[in-house]
Amino acid sequence: MRKTLLGLLGTVALLSGLASPALAFEPVNVVHTEKVQAGPYDLTVGFSTWPVKAMQSLDFTFAPEDGIAGKTGTLTMIWDGKEQDDDPLARHPRKRDVWGLDIQALPEPGTWTFRFDINGPAGAATGELRNLQVMEQPGPPMGLSWAISTLPLFGLIALIVIAWRRTRTTVNP
């Protein structure tokens, strides 16, 4: 029993040790930028991959020309004329000097709009990045991906059916 416990503790220690050096988080590499004018604020929108494809995650950065200090704001994402998301502009976790979204995917292909409502020393203003074209998702169709991924559920249902049939004659509620 003691050996088993020591073995388990050793495994946990080994796993913890392995986890630390493996935590090499990717830096934010902006490969494409777009400019947005929100009243007095010049905003640069950065993308870590370009072109953007549906479901493929990337880093977005939103950088006012004179920094984010003293400013707050809201990002509203609009697709097909409908608001999809409405969140305060937060610092990018891996690039804290700008606002951003880390490893986030736009779920649908088509035309997206990012609306920025910014409050700062020069007052409140709104600007939009319009006509952001998002291409079709890469990879297999979602129906196929879901079919592959729900196989365990169908296996479980098959098991239940077998067990049900084998215990049917002995039901005694």
């Binding site: 493929q56 990337l58 890469p138 879901w146 592959i148 991924s149 196989l151 365990p152 479980l156």
Partner: peptide, 29 residues
């Protein structure tokens, strides 16, 4: 399957992706 998925789509932290549901169903079994 999940590793391949993340290679193609990136490490988007979404619970309801097909491979994640496959993994959760496997653990449920």
């Amino acid at each position: 399957w999940d590793q391949w998925w993340h290679g193609l789509y990136g490490f988007d932290a979404v619970i309801a992706s097909p491979p994640h549901i496959g993994l959760l169903l496997s653990i449920s079994i």
